[in-house]
Design a binder for these strands. Structure first.
Lengths: 217, 217
DNA sequence: TAGATTGTTAATCGATTAACAATC
DNA sequence: TAGATTGTTAATCGATTAACAATC
């Protein structure tokens, strides 16, 4: 592989996808990097730099074909196919994520969920099969699932991750407040909601004493 | 202000807090940067560098007092007091966040929630008052709330943010798939769940063709 | 051709890692 | 005193921004 691709670039590709969907809805055939950048409130340089990691998608002096760039980015992100996920921990958050529309729109479907609480399990819930946690290995053996979404308490999260890994699942979206993104066998993305809120309280507290200006990013 | 503090540093302070809570539970009075770093799977350099932005908290040759460092970080993050938040959009995700324990443990309490759906509103729900969206200004005038948590559809998110700002709320945790973190009057943190999943599908797709090794971070 | 806009190289900026002097 | 560990400076690494040649 030629140049290392920044993680931030990958995350921004999703934004570009959204912008293109918007411009397509607006019946635009072609857009410039400037127009996309304005829509997303970023700089056009960044968009072009990000795309340059993957190839040449535009025409100099013209811009980008919305439809073509959309397809190209979908392909880069692997979103030109369907993916299936399992939610582990069917509490408030697990349930909310199971029915999150944003995932389905991208072709990512929650197929099954697991929970320790026997009262929740062994039934279908809006098309999703809910199983007891101890049946995880058994169920995942027959269901084709590539992604695990972990919303269990932090005490068991690491164990769950390694069990998922044992079932052949190589990607985890983790909501437990600890780092799962450290192994070499699993790709994990940690989403730590408490950290995000502390980030806000830090700035609320700090904004006071300094001045109304604020270091957003 | 002397040196600019990286955003990543602020986010890591929350992790340090958790590590210290762990070591306190383990009855440790003093910990070294190495021990904390091992627990969190980061490098001790990073911990020490991060802390150095805020002062001197350890004793050379000894380490850090768990209790003292805990208090110091709480103060830095503004977590030595209570904060109150309003959830806007009481759908699946809004409801899940309203009862998320991790927030309460940090002294951040959801006081009220708003939704357009009249069937959900004008009642209490496990201690949280649910109000119709059009009463937002009225309710927020009498309730002391510093943080807005936005889980409305993307079409209305920007409008909601500016209405929150108009009510004196200066910090927003945004789950709508667009950027609210651009104004100078509001501190926003955007949490984009679809991006996180695409990040995983990208790596799943890419890991195949390269090799089992993976560029975690 | 002139104007517009891309793709890429170079310059800048910022964050992480490493090394080490200070000191408990 | 010797060993341990912090806090800070310096070196490295990586990402963003800017500038511009290529070209539609």
């Amino acid at each position: 592989m030629a140049k290392k691709i920044p993680e931030e670039t990958i995350l921004r590709l999703s934004h570009y996808l959204r912008a293109l969907l918007y411009f397509l809805e607006e019946k635009k055939d072609v857009v410039s990097s400037r127009a996309i950048a304005e829509f997303l409130k970023i700089s056009p340089h960044q968009l072009r730099k990000d795309l340059s990691y993957f190839g040449h998608f535009g025409k100099k002096g013209v811009g980008y074909s919305c439809a073509q760039l959309l397809e190209a980015i979908k392909e880069i992100l692997g979103l030109n196919r369907n993916w299936y996920a399992a939610v582990v921990g069917f509490g408030n958050l697990g349930r909310a994520l199971s029915f999150y529309k944003g995932f389905r729109d991208q072709g990512i479907f929650i197929k099954v969920a697991f929970d320790v609480d026997e009262k929740k399990t062994n039934r279908m819930y809006k098309g999703i099969g809910i199983y007891p946690l101890e049946k995880m290995e058994e169920v995942l053996k027959r269901e084709k699932v590539q992604i695990g979404i972990v919303t269990v308490p932090k005490e068991v999260a690491e164990d769950i991750a390694s069990r998922l890994s044992g079932c052949g699942i190589r990607a985890i979206l983790n909501f437990a407040p600890l780092k799962l993104n450290f192994s070499h066998t699993i790709i994990a993305k940690d989403v730590d909601l408490s950290c995000q809120l502390s980030y806000l309280t830090y700035h609320l507290k700090t904004a006071h004493r300094d001045s109304p200006k604020q270091s957003s990013k």
